[in-house]
Design a protein around this nucleic acid. Structure first.
Lengths: 167, 167
DNA sequence: TATTGTTATACTCTATAACTATA
DNA sequence: TATAGTTATAGAGTATAACAATA
């Protein structure tokens, strides 16, 4: 009976691309956050750290906000936290005294390395029941859908100003 | 330079299955919520309506909470809203006077039909750059990953009690 | 006058616990 | 005593607007 209900349920939206991707993506994000937590990092801090580390020139807070689609107001507390943990330093920009240059520390880069390792391990879990070529297919198809949706590589929609709900 | 940064960014996590699925899924959920809003429905109300409509026997609030992985406290306001809009009726269960039986109204079922049509239209958008067989592949692969993650068909992780964050 | 970073306030959503009425 | 539904309170997270310092 529960099984019958589920069957009917599926037939409506449960197997739509939109729902399936949302379901899998939400669970992935939960798992990522859970596995990141023991490192004392949350996903937003990870995004900022990664953005700083992979930029060639030093970034201002406003630049980070722009890159990740966030409002600069919401970057302040994030940098506060990263600075308190000793992973990022604020340095006054000598060229523009209003702004701070954000510098990831050695400890911050080590943290980032460990966080990236967690992403890789999580991918192993997601791919557990797929062959190698299926993994490549899925990655390729998802990347094409991401492009179709206008998503920039590495920029998560939840980082941006968002409407008040989703699920 | 922006392009260079992105390349470096991607190489770290931007093309992981975990991040790609989370990114695509989050955007799908946003789009779904946006397209649903003009119907005066939110995604949680949609989930409840759909669950009620596809159940063979009438459900109690607690049963809806169980089916969707929600806490019963959080179902109350949802049913309040659905009842206020005339899409669901509460009827005292004659067999158990503590409980309500939830009955979707004809107007509620019409709303649900329109919401389901929105899911279908959204799928067309997601699939815009894929061939028919690629759509089937993607659906199949996502469903298998969903199974691997222990996700029940039609039950969105965000409906459940959740840790305080995800992106 | 515009921009960078900051702070303050209000609002939404959720978790938790306590309450009532039935069983 | 346990359970269905309800209500109240507190907390996290965000949006918005306003502020100081500098351009």
């Amino acid at each position: 009976m529960t099984r019958d209900r589920r069957t009917a349920y599926e037939s409506r939206y449960g197997l739509s691309l939109a729902f399936l991707s949302s379901q899998v993506g939400a669970r992935s994000a939960q798992l990522f956050a859970e596995r990141l937590a023991p490192l004392d990092v949350n996903p937003r801090e990870f995004a900022v750290l990664s953005n700083l580390a992979s930029s060639e020139e030093p970034l201002h807070q406003q630049a980070v906000a722009d890159a990740l689609g966030m409002h600069r107001n919401n970057v302040v507390a994030l940098i506060d936290a990263l600075e308190a943990k000793g992973w990022v330093r604020r340095e006054r920009d000598s060229a523009d005294r209003r702004a701070y240059v954000l510098v990831p520390t050695r400890a911050g880069l080590r943290k980032l390395g460990r966080a990236n390792a967690i992403v890789e391990k999580l991918d192993v879990v997601l791919a557990a029941s797929l062959t190698t070529s299926e993994v490549d297919q899925l990655r390729d198809l998802l990347a094409r859908v991401a492009g179709e949706l206008g998503l920039a590589p590495g920029v998560h929609p939840h980082l941006a100003a968002r409407p008040r709900h989703s699920p």
